[in-house]
Design a protein around this nucleic acid. Structure first.
Lengths: 209, 209
DNA sequence: AAAATAATTAAACGTTTGTTTGATTTTAAT
DNA sequence: ATTAAAATCAAACAAACGTTTAATTATTTT
């Protein structure tokens, strides 16, 4: 489905409010007020508040570039390099759209909407498969350990990055970087997070020190 | 504050519903129905729905045994052993009270209640301090690396374990262990998770392979 | 046994909720 | 310029919300 300008404006407003206040903590009036539209427009364009949530996922998950697939098939890269790029790709995704990932985190806790659950599950399975193949390849080439728990590995990657959405400001304060410009801090933080997870994955995957 | 039987019954019912449906997704009537009490009892005992949520945190966080503190001070244990026990302590905590930790995860995303934010922040700071001391000790003794990012390390531990609450069943299915008895699977899972995080931490902390 | 306190109840309170209605305005197609 | 379609609006809808009331029943204290 394609969304027009007004629809995207509503979706982005809803996304921000759902992220900050939760789905059930946000009323359609809140959304209408913040987006400067009449309340009836939400039903008019999306049918219901629930379907507006679905639209958010349609827009955001649909827009997830499948750079990953082509990355994996690249024959010139070593398996560990591919893993590292996968990590950066994931970090980039989450920090680029933190509001959406906050919504997704909230939805995963409580939401029962079949369409949304399906979309998230499909995303996870796809991730697990791609990474699984990648690891098998590394094992064949003898550079990865024989026993690797793919799910736990991804759980750590996703869990760590997700948790940073909540603890990023605390991290900044703890490391006394509140006086840095946002842009600078964000880049520093991203790099540290990237190195951190790559270190973890290296330990899981390889036999090197 | 001390809670009587009836209050605990209400708290545990609310905890379960808040975990499954979220705070704003649960009505006081839902709680009253599930707990087989009159709806007015919630205001009577707790004052409001919001304060009932606070009571959940009071009961659960208040009950968190401070085994950790005494563990840290134990002079006969090596730093890496202490770290490993800390990991198991955390896993035990979360898997023992998954409903509460699900509530806490949800609350951290959206809740603005000062009392609750305070309680969670205090818990996190306390954790960071204890682990920070432990690591300094290991560094003095020359068994830990000189540069360790404590916050990111804890983010990984908490993020990984938190994420398992949501992905545990998927993990079970993926590894074809649905036919195992719950008890058996839970123990197996707990052990794997423990080993997993210990491997990660070892890579962050030490120079060994 | 009487009095005082605590627990429980059904009913009602005023708000807020998501959604729909029907009229009106704006835009696009003929 | 006329018609058709799309967009916008204020108002209304019933249902659900958290909380309070005032009366009643149970328990405890005197």
């Amino acid at each position: 489905m394609e969304f027009n300008e007004k629809q995207i404006q509503i979706i982005e407003t809803a996304e921000r409010l759902f992220a900050d206040e939760g789905f059930n903590g946000t009323s359609v009036r809140d959304i209408a007020d913040e987006a400067n539209i009449n309340i009836a427009m939400i039903s008019y364009y999306f049918g219901s508040k629930e379907k507006l949530l679905e639209a958010i996922f349609e827009l955001r998950i649909g827009n997830l570039k499948t750079r990953v697939e082509s990355l994996i098939k690249n024959e010139t890269l070593r398996p560990i390099e591919k893993v590292n790029m996968l990590i950066d790709e994931h970090i980039e995704r989450v920090l680029e759209k933190p509001l959406f990932h906050k919504v997704m985190a909230g939805v995963q806790l409580t939401n029962k909407n079949p369409a949304i659950i399906k979309a998230i599950t499909r995303l996870k399975i796809s991730n697990a498969e791609v990474v699984g193949e990648l690891i098998k390849d590394g094992q064949k080439k003898g550079v990865f350990k024989k026993k690797v728990d793919v799910i736990l590995m991804l759980t750590t990657m996703i869990g760590t990055v997700n948790n940073t959405i909540m603890s990023k400001d605390y991290y900044r304060e703890f490391n006394k970087q509140v006086d840095l410009p946002d842009e600078t801090f964000n880049e520093t933080f991203k790099r540290r997070l990237s190195i951190h997870i790559k270190t973890l994955f290296k330990a899981i995957l390889t036999n090197e020190a």
